[in-house]
């Protein structure tokens, strides 16, 4: 009888693909899926394309319209994100009720984590700005202006989402001359968010640090905050769990004070007080007799041992 085996990939490539889809400890940059909703306006289409261009090596642009209302049912987007292996998505749509709609969302383990809906009020594309653009895949500087970013709960989430969307990947070193892109997010009091993208020009300042000048590069987007669906605290906590190897082990007994001085605490064994050398006094000195007695005492235990061994040996002999 043939044994029914567990289904395995038949080809080597299939095996590799399945292996690549397994979760890994340290993840690379998140991929973004840019897609269109049921209907899109010119505005939205250009906006999506520009966002795709900003994200480019880590993004995938889908050109067809998808009949998806994500706030009612998120599963089609989840499926698309699973298909393209992306954990971020930007969906644009246009309707009478919500004109020029942009939804930014994140996935955790192929299911929706959180999303926000933004209305696009005004837009100028990359092409509208004359001048040099940045090189592909540059890590941008992210600037958040306005007190609202730290005050409103929804904006806190949106900030996290924007950082997730644009920060690219964690790097150890960065080339100083390669810092040429800055994206600023300004949250105004009337629930508007202004996204500006600038090319950074480094000018001479007479000291080591250069003087920064900005030149608007596009895209230029003004958003209003619409609906949002935020992750539950539990899920977010679960999603933000850090791998053990990235956690820094706590250094014991070492601390730094306010002035930056390093303090260490060391443990020394108990001191033997009996053998401590104290002040020498004539009165406490041993007399010649005492010394002799001590010498004798030192010798005695040895003689006692020899005495004790002898009878045992004789006993043994007797037994034999």
């Amino acid at each position: 009888m043939a044994i029914q085996r567990v289904v395995k990939p038949t080809t080597r490539k299939g095996k590799r693909v399945l292996e690549a889809r397994q979760p890994i400890t340290i993840e690379g940059p998140k991929q973004t899926l840019v897609l269109h909703g049921r209907k899109t306006s010119d505005f939205i289409r250009l906006g999506l394309k520009d966002l795709y261009r900003l994200k480019k090596p880590d993004a995938k642009l889908l050109s067809r319209n998808n009949d998806i209302t994500i706030f009612e049912n998120a599963s089609p987007v989840e499926e698309l994100c699973r298909k393209y292996e992306t954990s971020l998505f930007i969906m644009g749509s246009h309707s009478k009720k919500r004109p020029n709609n942009l939804i930014i969302g994140r996935m955790y383990n192929y299911s929706l984590l959180d999303m926000v809906e933004l209305g696009l009020d005004s837009f100028q594309s990359l092409a509208d700005f004359v001048g040099p653009k940045i090189t592909l895949g540059t890590k941008p500087c992210l600037i958040f202006n306005g007190p609202a970013w730290d005050q409103m709960d929804e904006l806190k989430h949106l900030k996290s989402m924007f950082v997730d969307l644009f920060h690219r990947e964690n790097v150890e070193n960065i080339r100083l001359q390669g810092l040429e892109h800055a994206i600023s997010f300004t949250a105004t009091a009337d629930n508007k968010i202004l996204l500006r993208s600038y090319k950074v020009l480094l000018k001479k300042s007479g000291c080591k640090t250069p003087r920064v000048e900005l030149e608007e590069m596009g895209p230029h987007l003004d958003f209003t905050f619409r609906r949002s669906k935020l992750a539950s605290e539990d899920l977010m906590k679960q999603a933000c769990r850090k791998p053990k190897i990235l956690k820094v082990a706590k250094r014991k007994n070492v601390s730094r004070d306010g002035l930056g001085t390093l303090h260490g605490r060391i443990h020394v064994g108990k001191q033997n007080i009996t053998s401590l050398q104290t002040r020498k006094m004539k009165g406490l000195k041993k007399t010649a007799e005492e010394k002799r007695a001590e010498k004798k005492q030192r010798k005695r235990p040895l003689t006692a041992e020899t005495n004790s061994t002898k009878p045992v040996a004789s006993k043994k002999r007797k037994v034999e």
Partner: peptide, 26 residues
């Protein structure tokens, strides 16, 4: 800073901004 192939690179500290993972830990 450090010099790598005729360009100056700055050593960035590890980021403190907590972002969610895309997949659970293996």
């Amino acid at each position: 800073t450090d010099r790598v192939e005729e360009s100056i690179v700055a050593k960035l500290p590890s980021s403190n901004f907590v972002l969610p993972r895309s997949r659970p830990l293996p």
